[in-house]
Design a protein around this nucleic acid. Sequence first.
DNA 1: CTAAAATACTTTAGGCTTAATCTATTGAAG
DNA 2: CTTCAATAGATTAAGCCTAAAGTATTTTAG
Lengths: 177, 177
Amino acid sequence: MLRVTAIDPSNGPRVRRADRETSARADDHRALRLWLRLLTCTQLLERHMRNLLRMRFATTLPRFDLMSRLERYPEGLKMKELSHHLMVTGGSVTGIVDQLVTERLVERLPEPGDRRAFRVRLTRGGYEVFGKMARAHEEWIISVLSGLSRKEHAELFRLLARVKSHALEITERKDGA
Amino acid sequence: MLRVTAIDPSNGPRVRRADRETSARADDHRALRLWLRLLTCTQLLERHMRNLLRMRFATTLPRFDLMSRLERYPEGLKMKELSHHLMVTGGSVTGIVDQLVTERLVERLPEPGDRRAFRVRLTRGGYEVFGKMARAHEEWIISVLSGLSRKEHAELFRLLARVKSHALEITERKDGA
DNA sequence: CTAAAATACTTTAGGCTTAATCTATTGAAG
DNA sequence: CTTCAATAGATTAAGCCTAAAGTATTTTAG
């Protein structure tokens, strides 16, 4: 029989979690355990997002991210800028933009004065579709993070800022940027 | 000329970071910004790990994770169990184990009493290789998280635990587990 | 002006991921 | 014993990702 519709909300991914860190041994070290917990949290939330985007809007997180970025720049962004903002290489951006163009959600416009480049912009329809997705997306986020008090939110935000800035220092140094 | 060796440490990924959240608008909401920051942090650290694993050991994060898990179970794990622990679907595990088997780092052993299943275990060589990688890996982790004091480590760990447990509640509920 | 270097983007090959389907084996019910 | 459902794993198609190489255009140096 196998009545499995792609839209059925009860049809999540078939991965049952034990998660990477639950069974960490007692002698594992502090930093390692912190990293594993960070990774686990992000993966849990990310999986949640992906499922909801897929089930309710038949789209993916990378597509959503790209549209989300464009929504902030009504004048559009160049491929290079998108790649920079989304922290992925140009090849990915080319592929995702191609798809969104065929779906008429974004458009490529010539960049005046540089025939190598062009601007990518949300179409009118793109704005409409994105609006719906963004509202649902934010609700999910709020709900999934509602276990923390306002104070804890702020503290977590602050600590992650420190992690981020230190990580940037280190990677910049090693990348020779 | 293009002297680009895969091992040159100065040859990081060509993605220059602006990261998703730097330019978040003032009216973006708390939860959303917290989520974006969490995602950015994880991606930065993960990218760092991937690069170092690739440059120094010519391997990948998923391969490392799988070996890391096996190292904790000298008696081996079944494919199903690996999939569960690593939080990925079976197809991924099949592919990664196949590679590691051809590299003689892990082995498949028959599971007595169930001819459908088998145990996957690190080989002697697998233990050796993994040992070297694990030491380097932990050093990187410690260094990248060294920007936080011991107290901040503990606090971040605690807050992430709260995020994790709340996320698990929600996803369990929705997945109908 | 012209040659070389840099830039913007695309393409390609290969890895990891998922969801869905397939095969083989096991277990449970009649 | 036989049938049918559940389970373990492999396979497939398709998406996103990277690194590397290719194309077209622009900029810079001589």
